[in-house]
Simulated scan of single mutants.
Amino acid sequence: MTPVNADTAFELGRTLPALTLDARLVRIAAIAHRAVMTTSLGVEDQVLTAAIAGAARGIHLATLDTGRLFPETEALLAETRVRYGLDIVAYRPRAEDVEDFTARYGVDGFYGSREARHACCHARKLVPLARALKGADVWVTGLRRDQSGARASTPFAEWDGERGLLKVNPLADWSGEDVRAYVAAHDVPVNPLHARGYPSIGCEPCTRAVKPGESERAGRWWWERDDTRECGLHVAAKVPAYASS
């Protein structure tokens, strides 16, 4: 098997748009030594999980259990494991990292400053993500271009030079309607919070329902006045990305 690199990103960006979702995942699995899909149990990730269960079970699944998730998210994880018979491995923050954050900022100190919020995301998400992606050469995500303005240029594939792996977004060109149609057609289990106005769901203290006219991710870290806010998981690639549409 040839090494996965930036040239692979270009090739995937060129070929994936013409394929069905199942075919996209089969293609991704075929080029990877180890592919890992990280799921937040959001509706896009549930679509990918269902498709992986049916067409590409060689793709490993992982989730980041931050310790501050909604009970509905935790229940959905258990239901999804049973429904699809998949081993979705949960990666949790290290106790010492959480303790260090709490000692410096307080339990809910992330409300106090951007620095504190990023420190919390680092401890509860970025450090566990590094463990989840250890040994992987392909990282599969549920990013879509129409989730927010910050994600409007999401490519199908990009070389993540910082992590030394290929990041692939098989749903990059899907609309919210495409996602909902797939859920209905395949009876995919979804978080009940979606029906209560939460299109994007993260940690419970950091997520609110969106208001009419707001973007899907407006309810994340809503107290920060920045439409491009992210937790740091999806940093910009270090080499040019290949969008293809």
Rank of each mutant, 00 (worst) to 15 (best):
R131M: 04
Q147L: 13
E79S: 05
V4H: 11
E79Q: 14
Y91T: 02
H234N: 07
A185Q: 13
V43N: 12
Q147W: 10
L41E: 03
L21C: 02
F156N: 11
L133H: 14
A157D: 02
E230S: 04
V140R: 04
A150N: 14
A55P: 00
A51M: 00
K125T: 11
E162W: 01
H234C: 08
H186S: 04
W223G: 15
A181N: 14
P189M: 15
R217F: 15
Y84L: 04
V36C: 06
R92K: 14
T228Y: 06
R196H: 05
I201Q: 00
S245E: 09
C121W: 09
R104Y: 10
R14V: 05
T49F: 00
F10L: 13
Y91S: 06
L165E: 04
D45L: 00
T102R: 15
N191Q: 11
A30T: 10
H60N: 15
A172V: 13
A123I: 12
W222A: 15
V82Q: 14
A185W: 02
K238P: 10
A95H: 13
W159R: 07
H194A: 05
R163I: 05
D187Q: 04
N169I: 07
L143T: 12
T15P: 00
F70W: 12
A150S: 15
L166N: 11
V47G: 10
R81Y: 05
K167T: 15
V239K: 12
A103N: 01
N191W: 07
V183I: 06
R145S: 11
A29P: 03
E216D: 10
T39F: 01
G109P: 01
G202R: 08
R27G: 09
V26R: 04
A75Y: 08
E230P: 12
A157H: 05
A30C: 14
A35S: 01
R83V: 00
E72I: 01
D7V: 02
T66K: 09
E115V: 10
A50F: 02
P17H: 12
H60I: 05
H234M: 03
F110S: 06
V235K: 09
E11P: 01
D226R: 06
A35C: 04
E224G: 11
G161N: 11
R229A: 11
A236L: 08
V98M: 09
D173K: 08
A95E: 15
P71E: 14
S245T: 03
A51Y: 00
L143W: 10
T63Y: 00
A152F: 02
P205A: 08
E99G: 08
M1E: 03
G58K: 02
R225F: 10
T228K: 12
G54K: 06
L143C: 11
W139C: 11
L21A: 09
R83H: 05
A136I: 02
D160S: 10
R229I: 09
A95G: 13
S148P: 05
A150L: 13
T141G: 07
V89N: 10
S40G: 15
V43I: 13
